[in-house]
């Protein structure tokens, strides 16, 4: 996984970079399965490796698929990144260990979800109960974000077809309705 991330750093062919980012997503999905998050792995495999790769390829088709040559290493950002990473790693020294059942994250609301969701909500999949019932407001907000993003894409680049409708030599715009 780190290998794909680092090769994305070096490669200048953007097509290869986009493909690697799909592979990176699949690796992440495997990691999620290992860590028991089956729903998340499912989403990552469908979204990260599927849809976002298609969208990035679509963007490449509209722009350029080669990156301009640049310096291999820029030292200013490198120092900044290493510094930030160092601080973050220093911060993890007090974190609970991996797989620790007594970690603070497991001692509050999660127990209620695991013990009561079967009788209070019903579905055996706790993730679904929490997503749709306990945290319904949250999911409503997330759905609104997806909606807004789609509207945003339409507003930013969807308008060109309206301009093109005025020009007679564009045959394919007739079929789709315009924004």
């Amino acid at each position: 996984m780190a290998g794909t991330a680092i090769s994305m750093l070096w490669l200048r062919d953007l097509f290869a970079v986009v493909m690697l980012s799909g592979i990176y997503s699949l690796f992440a999905a495997v990691l999620y399965v290992v860590m028991d998050a089956v729903d998340v792995a499912f989403t990552e495999a469908a979204v990260g490796a599927g849809i976002s790769t298609v969208l990035m390829l679509g963007t490449l088709a509209l722009t350029k698929s080669k990156e301009r040559a640049h310096k291999k290493i820029s030292y200013g950002p490198l120092v900044l990144v290493l510094l930030t990473g160092g601080v973050l790693i220093y911060g993890t020294l007090d974190m609970p260990r991996y797989g620790d059942a007594n970690a603070p994250i497991h001692s509050h609301v999660a127990n209620r979800y695991i013990e009561k969701s079967g009788s209070e909500v019903g579905p055996p999949n706790i993730v679904t109960s929490v997503l749709a019932s306990y945290r319904g407001y949250d999911t409503l907000g997330e759905t609104a974000v997806v909606f807004t993003a789609a509207i945003g894409v339409l507003v930013i680049i969807g308008r060109r077809r309206k301009n093109k409708k005025d020009t007679p030599q564009a045959p394919k715009t007739k079929e789709g309705s315009t924004s």
Binding site: V127, V130, D138, T139
Partner: peptide, 11 residues
């Protein structure tokens, strides 16, 4: 395993 992070990350 704790379902709460799963829900947050899924969305």
């Amino acid at each position: 395993s704790n379902p709460l992070p799963h829900v947050l990350i899924l969305t």
